[in-house]
Design a binder for these strands. Structure first.
Lengths: 152, 152
DNA sequence: TATTGTTATACTCTATAACTATA
DNA sequence: TATAGTTATAGAGTATAACAATA
């Protein structure tokens, strides 16, 4: 039946590695977030943008790109869509920069996004004590910094 | 100078959210891992595959797909490349399943990948105590489970 | 010179549908 | 009927180069 003995037991060496566990968890959490904002007709990137702009009304695309570590070029179609659907409005800041504002409809949508995000946050952290959550956040920031930088 | 008052201060509401901090950290760590295996001529997915197969010699593509939560279709070109470059060898397991084995060259490469992964792991966790690392791993698994499942 | 916003483009990753051959 | 492997393809995310207008 078997030309070569099939493996009876599969083990997963990846689940002992922090890097991969981080990635898997991130994927699962991102999928859950996407599902949470999908009823609002938004993708993850659009919902993220709304949360950011709601907290920084009047910011520009380059503000967003810097803060969210995104490529400015990739924000263009995203913001165009949100302007066309009446969620965002542009107002000239100076002759080259453009301030982004929420329309009345956009403010309502942003509120719903924030509610969905809060519910999602509560869900993914529901088995973590506040202290553990704080410690995990702190650890994540350290890991992120140590992964990014080159040196000692 | 300003048609609309520009924001002086940008704040980032995302960095208080566990979900987004998870994503950012995961992206940074993934990039660092990609850079770590790039000198070996491997992408993240290929290096991951080698780590897994080295720990499970004789496994099949569907074993891999299940364990790594990947689509079987996406493994095909990946494994084809590794076979063509002499890293993997196929051996019939039964008339439809195929066992995957490391060639001599593949075993050497897998060893280097595991070394690079270990170094990468040490780097990203270098400011975490062993106890904190363990706690973070445990928290990540809980978060992952709570994000995936639907219910209570 | 550097910055803001933009276009076009390319590449990777991921997802699905459909097929074959085998169990 | 379900499983193993495959093909083809489509979508989303992300990256860069190059440009015009402005600081």
């Amino acid at each position: 039946m078997k030309a070569l003995e099939r493996l009876e037991t599969i083990r997963d060496p990846l689940e002992e590695l922090l890097g991969f566990e981080l990635r898997r968890t991130s994927v699962a959490v991102s999928n859950a977030f996407a599902a949470a904002v999908e009823p609002l007709g938004l993708r993850t990137s659009e919902a993220t943008l709304l949360i950011f702009i709601a907290a920084n009304e009047g910011c520009t695309q380059s503000d967003i790109a810097r803060a969210l570590r995104a490529q400015p070029a990739n924000l263009v179609p995203l913001i165009q869509k949100l302007v066309q659907t009446g969620v965002l409005a542009r107002a000239p800041a100076d002759k080259r920069a453009v301030s982004l504002l929420l329309t009345k409809q956009g403010a309502e949508l942003a509120k719903q996004v924030n509610q969905a995000a809060a519910k999602h946050e509560a869900r993914i952290a529901r088995r973590l004590s506040p202290e553990t959550r704080t410690q995990v956040m702190k650890a994540l920031r350290m890991i992120c910094k140590d992964a990014c930088c080159e040196d000692s």
